[in-house]
Design a protein around this nucleic acid. Structure first.
Lengths: 343, 343
DNA sequence: CTGAAAGCGCTAACAT
DNA sequence: ATGTTAGCGCTTTCAG
C-alpha cells in the first residue's frame, strides 16, 4: 500500500503542500487552526515525511557510514557504542559494514556509501592498518575522501593527509612494558600480531625501545608475532614454554592473544602470575572477567568512537580539524601480572 | 564541491540523460561507441549515481534497519554477521542502532528508519522480550510493521501476528538440564535472568518441566533469577554457596551469568566441574576460551541472523512466510560440567 | 538506438 | 499566513 505523502495531507486539509511542510519543519508561522488540522491529519495517517526526498534537496542524509573489519571482535562494538552515543545527539544514524579484512568488500562498501550519499565515513581496519598498502587502494580511499568527509580510526595511509583519530599504541606499549620492568622483570617476551600490519610494528618498535632504554637485552627468539587470535597466543606461548631459557613476563599485542597465552600456560600447569606475568592490550570487556583478571592497556574504545564522530562532525561542518587526534591509552593493572618468582 | 550528476555526463557526452541512465543500468541497448564515450566520462569524473534520487522513484533503498539492545553483548555481533552475510548477496546494507533497552530510543529509531524508508526492519530485544508489554508500545510496532516488512528476532508480542524468527529456548533449556541429569545430578539450581522478561520465564518453565519429568524435586530456594550480567551470576552463586544444602549443578540463563558463577566459585575455592557443574546458554565466542571451557547451549546466532534476513527478503518480495520460524539450539558439552562428586 | 518529458516527495524562494 | 512553482538526480514511458 502506498505511503501517504505531503500531498495527501495537503489535499485533505485543503491547504498547499508548502503549509504542510511548514508545520512539519516549523519553518514559518502557521495559523493555529490550520496547524491543528494538519497535525491531526498527520496523526491520523501516521504520516512520516520521506527522508529520501528531503535529502535529495538538502544534500544531507543524516547517515554516517562505518566500515569495520569485524564486529565480532569486542573492541569494535565498544567503539561503535561511543560513536553512536555521540552521533545520536546530532541526529545521525549509522550504516554499518563488516569488511572482514577483504579489500574488495571495503571497496564495494565505500561505493555503496558514496552512492547513498552518507554525510561522512568512519573507516577502521583493513587497508589502513597495512605497513605497505597498494597504491590503487590508497588512491581509491583518497578519492572518496575528497568527496565525502572521512576519518581514519586507528590507522593511516602513507603519503596522504587523510584525517586520523588514533590511540597512541606506542605509548600504550611503553606503559605496559614499563609496568613489567617496574615489577622487576628483566626477561620479557612479545607475542602475537601479524608482521605486515602497522599495529604490530608500532608495538614491536615501542617494545624494543622501552627495553633498550631500561638497559635490558632484547632476545630475538622471544619475539613471536603470529596473528591476533586466541589460538595464535596459545601457539606462541607453547613455543615459549618449550624453551629452556624463557621469559618471566610477556607482552601480548591484544587481549585475545593474552588469553590464548594464559590458556596455554594453564594447560601446562604454569601459574599466572606466579610463574609468568602476562599483559594484554585493548581491555575488552572480558579482560575484566577472565581468570585471572587480565592486566592490560585500555585503548578507550568508547572514547575513540566519540572522538572520531566529533572530528567527523567538525569536518561535515567544514570546520578545520587536526590531521591527527591522538588518544592516550591507560594501563589497567589487574591479576595477570606480578613480581617475578625469586630464583 | 558539487558531485557530478547524470546531466553533467550527458552534456559532455552530447547525449540525453536517458542514454546515460541506460548504460548505467544496462536497461536497453546503446550503440557501442556512445556507450564507450559515456563509460569513459563516468570513469573520468568518478561518477556515482545518487542512490537517493533513484530510491525516491523506485521506492526501495537497499537498506535493512536493525535494532538491537546492545551490540556490546557478543551475541548480537554474531547475529549481525550472519544477517550481513545473507543480506549482502542481495545488495542490502544495514542501518544499525543500539536501543540500550530504552523504549523511547526504540521508538525514535523506528521512526528514523521509517522516514528513511528502509526496505525492512529486524527488531531484537527491548519490548519484544517483555512478559508484559504496554499496549502503546505494542501498537506502535504493529503500526510500523503494517507499513514496512518487519521481523521480530527472538521475541514476540502477545496478541499480534507479527512475523517471528526465534531459537527454541525451551528446547535448549531442556537439552542442558537433561545433560545435567544424565551425568547423575539430582540437585540442580537455576541462576540469572530478569523475571519480567520472556527469556527468563520460558527457560524457568522448561527447567521446571524437565526436572519434573525426571522425577526430581524442584527446590524453590535454588531458583535465583536476577539479571543477565556477570555480576549477577557471581552474586547469586555466592548466595548458593552459602547454603548448607546446595545443588551440585547449576543451569545459568546465559554465558555471562555462568562466567560470573564460575568466578564466584573460583574465589571460594570451589572447583568446576569437580565440585559443581555449570552450564550456560548462548555459546558466545569466549565460552570456548574461558577456563574451564564452558558447557553451553548454542543459539546459533549466525544462523539466526541469516534466517531472519531470509524471512525478511521473502516478505519484501511479498511472498507468504510462516508466522514463526524456529531454530533448534544445540548443546555444546565442554569442560564446565561433569559427574557429581561421590558423596 | 536515442531523446523529450513526466514524475518520485519534499523544500525554498517568490508571490500574494 | 499561505499558495505557486521550480528544482534535487534519477528512471521510465512514449515517440521518433
Amino acid at each position: 500500500m502506498r505511503q501517504v505523502t505531503i500531498y495527501d495531507i495537503a489535499k485533505e486539509a485543503k491547504v498547499s503542500v508548502a503549509t504542510v511542510s511548514r508545520v512539519l519543519n516549523d519553518t514559518a508561522p502557521v495559523k493555529v487552526s490550520t496547524r491543528a488540522k494538519i497535525e491531526e491529519l498527520i496523526e491520523k495517517y501516521n504520516f512520516q515525511p520521506n527522508a529520501m526526498a528531503r535529502s535529495l534537496l538538502k544534500k544531507e542524509t543524516g547517515i554516517i557510514g562505518l566500515i569495520v573489519p569485524d564486529l565480532t571482535n569486542p573492541f569494535f562494538p565498544e567503539v561503535f557504542a561511543g560513536a553512536e552515543h555521540e552521533a545520536q545527539q546530532s541526529g545521525y544514524t549509522f550504516l554499518l559494514s563488516n569488511s572482514i579484512g577483504d579489500y574488495a568488500k571495503e571497496s564495494e562498501y565505500l561505493s555503496i556509501m558514496r552512492e547513498k550519499r552518507v554525510d561522512g565515513i568512519m573507516f577502521m581496519g583493513g587497508r589502513i592498518n597495512l605497513k605497505q598498502c597498494e597504491e590503487p587502494l590508497v588512491q581509491e580511499l583518497v578519492q572518496h575522501a575528497s568527496v565525502i568527509p572521512t576519518v581514519l580510526v586507528n590507522g593511516g595511509l602513507r603519503n596522504t593527509d587523510l584525517i586520523r583519530v588514533s590511540t597512541d599504541e606506542a605509548a600504550g606499549t611503553a606503559l605496559a612494558v614499563k609496568h613489567l620492568i617496574e615489577l622487576g622483570h628483566t626477561k620479557i617476551g612479545f607475542i602475537g600480531g601479524e608482521s605486515h600490519m602497522t599495529t604490530t610494528s608500532i608495538k614491536l618498535r615501542a617494545f624494543r625501545k622501552t627495553l633498550k632504554e631500561a638497559g635490558l637485552a632484547i632476545r630475538e627468539e622471544w619475539l613471536l608475532p603470529d596473528s591476533f587470535s586466541i589460538d595464535s597466543g596459545k601457539r606462541q606461548m607453547l613455543k615459549l614454554l618449550a624453551m629452556s631459557d624463557r621469559p618471566t613476563a610477556i607482552f601480548c599485542v591484544n587481549d585475545y592473544t593474552a588469553i590464548g597465552a594464559i590458556k596455554a600456560a594453564a594447560e601446562m600447569g604454569i601459574r599466572i602470575p606466579e610463574d609468568i606475568s602476562i599483559v594484554g592490550f585493548d581491555d575488552i570487556p572480558l579482560a575484566h572477567h577472565f581468570i585471572p583478571e587480565l592486566t592490560t592497556v585500555s585503548q578507550q574504545a568508547n572514547e575513540l568512537g566519540r572522538t572520531a564522530v566529533n572530528v567527523l562532525k567538525a569536518m561535515m561542518n567544514k570546520e578545520k580539524v587536526k590531521k591527527l587526534t591522538s588518544l592516550e591509552p591507560q594501563l589497567i593493572v589487574r591479576q595477570s601480572t606480578g613480581k617475578p618468582a625469586a630464583t
